[in-house]
Design a protein around this nucleic acid. Structure first.
Length: 130
RNA sequence: UAAGACGGCCGGACAGUCGCGCCAUAGCUUGGACUAUGGUGAGGAAAGUCCGGGCAUCAGGGGAACAAGGCACCGGAUAACGUCCGGCUGGGGCAACCCAAGGGAAAGUGCCACAGAAAAUAACUGCCUGUCUAUAAGAUGGGCAAGGUUGAAAAGGCGAGGUAAGAGCUCACCGCGGUGGUGGCAACAUCAUUGGUCAAGGUAAACCCUGUCUGAUGCAAGACCAAGUUAGGAGCAUCAAGGUGUAUCUUUUUUAAGAUGCAAACCAGAUGAUAAGAGGCGUUCUCCCCUUACUCCAGAGGUGGGUCGCAAUGAGCUUUGAUAGCAAUAUCAAGCCCAGAUGAAUGGCUGUCGGUUUGAGCUUACUCAAAUUACAGAACCCGGCUUAUAGGCUGUCUUAUUUG
RNA sequence: GCGGGUAUAGCUCAGGGGUAGAGCGCAACCUUGCCAAGGUUGAUGUCGUGGGUUCAAAUCCCAUUGCCCGCU
């Protein structure tokens, strides 16, 4: 599974509207992306707001998110999904192994949501066809 | 030894492992969000954006007036500065040393609450005295500016003489001003002499005056490439008659095609020329020089694609050396090349050694354990200022005490 | 990256050198059988923070902190 970086503001907004899971240290959002599905890859973006602190704290937050995502997403990520990781105030202080564990849980949870939604849609399509 | 003053420097180190950006080279399924190897990768403040520049655009340059704003003891340093260095004056400290937006209040205007007779023109109270009425005292004329509960501030201070009462009215000392000498580039210091019409408080971080400096906008500047969109209006003359438009006619496939005419308007093109006019760095005026006719206004669409600017030649860097200077700094020599991203690299984890604090063993040392290890992240680039900062190293000096 | 504004009572805001104010809210009392409305009275500020100028600063100057906004 290849992991690429999200750069467009549009996709961040889409992700915020669709799926969302919150765990200790991380907020995870996601949305479907058809073009990514064709490449058999998923996209990931990182966000750290001004609320967290000054520039060096925000940079540190993004680095830890990036390091955690590099461990988790190649295995757990679904193809054709845009993930957005949002840092929280305790992201920099939490133990790193704990953070990765939590991220893994979050990704699994959000993947479940996405799959359920797709199955529903498929069923709906099937019903219509019938 | 204790207390203190002023500087300078550092801003954890090493190793392992998994990763990231950029550059170079090589490779490939040959142009990509690829792979390999090598190199390289945050600060003293990268911060705040408070000053000064470089650079870019407004075509370039000069002058006058006005406006707006900054600065303000003197000299020097510098590309420049509101920065720095050295001095002066005033204030603080026993001292080392520190602090100061530190020009002008006899150019003008304003303001000075409360209190106080009065906040600047004088008046009121008061002191002395002549005349009249006359018991006390009052009325009126003259002289005077010492005293008058206040206040941040009251028309030099203090003492003596002097007088009807008083008064720089006179004198001594101090202060203040003028002139001259000496020292100093100067601010200023000092000495001499002279001034009593000594000039009538404060406030200029109130307006202001004087001197001096400043064009505006900031790399989201700006240049090029690619893609896309478009109602309208304004701005010379001429030509030609292409497109479009429009009118008429013909054909018949009558929602079309063709022909001819027109050139008022629009689009596009060519030519001409200097007369007038328009635009061109805060405003007005002016001079030189130049430029534009596809320029300006307005509207529409879009939410921002790529390359350059932009990282190795610089106001560059150095625990280097020499020379000049008290110093800031300058010159010369030697050596060096040192981040360049754009949802934004410089990280995650582990170990060892450090620093600090606390506790225990405990005679300092030393050992063990725990905690802690700052402020903070380049975004066009430099010189400063300001603010934040755990902890540490180091130099010079002052005062006090003790010992030799 | 560049530029601007603001901070005053619990809340919303005046005041631009001389004793800090208004409205709403709060408290007490009056009115009522009780409540609301109404009336009377009262309390409430380190004027965001730290320096400076001044006799005197919320006000003028400098620095700083938080919040808000614009440019694209």
């Amino acid at each position: 599974m290849k992991v690429f970086i999200l750069k467009k503001r549009k996709y961040f907004i889409e992700a915020a509207k669709e799926f969302k899971v919150v765990v200790n240290g991380i907020v995870l959002q996601a949305a479907l992306n058809l073009s990514a599905a064709q490449q058999n890859a998923c996209f990931v973006g990182y966000t750290a707001t001004k609320k967290l602190g000054k520039a060096h704290i925000r940079n540190r937050t993004k680095r830890r998110l990036r390091a955690a995502a590099a461990l988790v997403l190649p295995e757990k990520g679904l193809a054709g999904v845009n993930y957005v990781l949002i840092g929280r105030h305790n992201t920099t202080t939490l133990d790193f192994s704990y953070l990765t564990k939590k991220l893994k849980e979050a990704v699994e949870a959000i993947n479940l949501q996405i799959i359920e939604r797709e199955q529903k849609n498929d069923q709906a399509d099937n019903d219509k066809n019938d």
